[in-house]
Amino acid sequence: MEYFLIIVSAIFVNNILLAQFLGICPFLGVSNKLSTATGMSGAVCFVITLATVVTYLLNQYLLVPFGLEFLQTISFILVIAALVQMVEIVLKKISPSLYQALGIFLPLITTNCAVLGVAITVVTKEFAFGGSAPHMLNLGQATVYAIATSLGYGLAMCLFAGLREHLAGNDVPKAFKGLPIALITVGIMAMAFLGFSGIV
């Protein structure tokens, strides 16, 4: 039950893009076409999940026992940067087709604040779902949270890319062209997602 609530909450209620404002730069950057949007979402999903598990373990077994929590930011970002590099190298060797689909997005992901954001949130914030007393997530819950959050990222990204493909063909006033109209569209989407709030 708790896992189900985590999933619903992470995908819809606290959508990482529309409610938490993480990972907006790549969201605006690559959402012009549905195909690139799905590629980027796939890569983000992969990296967020992997990075969250690795940083969770790092925090639990290295930083906390030695009282070094203040090194979270600096160690997490280095771990993420190294991880992204490694994923790129491994993917290239093991699955060239997957590398072709996701590869070009990987270097961009190091500076995607969604990755660092989720990693830090998971180890610092107390979560409360469906009336339970607030508590820190355990490894299983953290993993599910990371997967669900990145699915929410993918959902918002693909929905938005679909809308934006249609926008491209429309006649918009000159000053609104490009990003402004895109931002206003996201605003309306975020309003729709507000409707989910309160269900968990």
Binding site: K125, E126, F127, A128, F129, G131, P134
Partner: peptide, 11 residues
Amino acid sequence: SSTSGFGGALT
């Protein structure tokens, strides 16, 4: 005392 509010923990 800590409970779960609308957006998360309320302490």
